[in-house]
Amino acid sequence: MATWFITGASRGIGAEIARAALADGHNVVVGVRDPDRVPADLKNSDTVLTVALDVTDNASISPAVDAAVDRFGTIDVLVNNAGRGLLGALEEITDDEARSLFDLNVFGLINVTRAVLPVMRKQGSGKLVHIGSHSGFEGEPGVSLYSASKFAVAGISEALSAELAPFNIQSMVVEPGVFRTDFLNASSLSVAAHRIPDYDNTPAHITLDWIDQANHAQLGDPVKGAALITEVTTSDKLPTHLYLGADTLDRLRVKYQQVQEDLAPWREKSAATGHHDTA
Rank of each mutant, 00 (worst) to 15 (best):
A2S: 15
T3R: 04
T3D: 05
T7Y: 02
G12N: 08
A18V: 09
A20N: 07
L22G: 10
L22R: 14
R33C: 09
D34F: 00
D34V: 00
V38E: 02
A40L: 12
L42S: 06
S45V: 11
A52Y: 00
P63A: 07
D66N: 13
D66W: 00
V77T: 10
N80C: 08
A82R: 05
L90T: 11
A98C: 10
D103R: 11
L109V: 12
R114Y: 00
R114S: 03
A115M: 03
M120E: 08
Q123I: 04
P141Q: 01
Y146S: 10
A148Y: 03
K150G: 09
F151Y: 09
A152T: 02
A152E: 08
V153G: 04
G155L: 03
A159T: 14
E163H: 04
I169P: 00
V174S: 07
F179N: 07
R180N: 14
T181V: 11
D182S: 15
F183Q: 10
L184Y: 12
V191F: 15
L219T: 12
P222T: 02
V223Q: 09
V223R: 09
V232P: 03
S235W: 01
D236Q: 12
K237N: 11
L242K: 07
L242Q: 06
L242E: 00
K255E: 03
K255W: 01
G274K: 10
D277G: 12
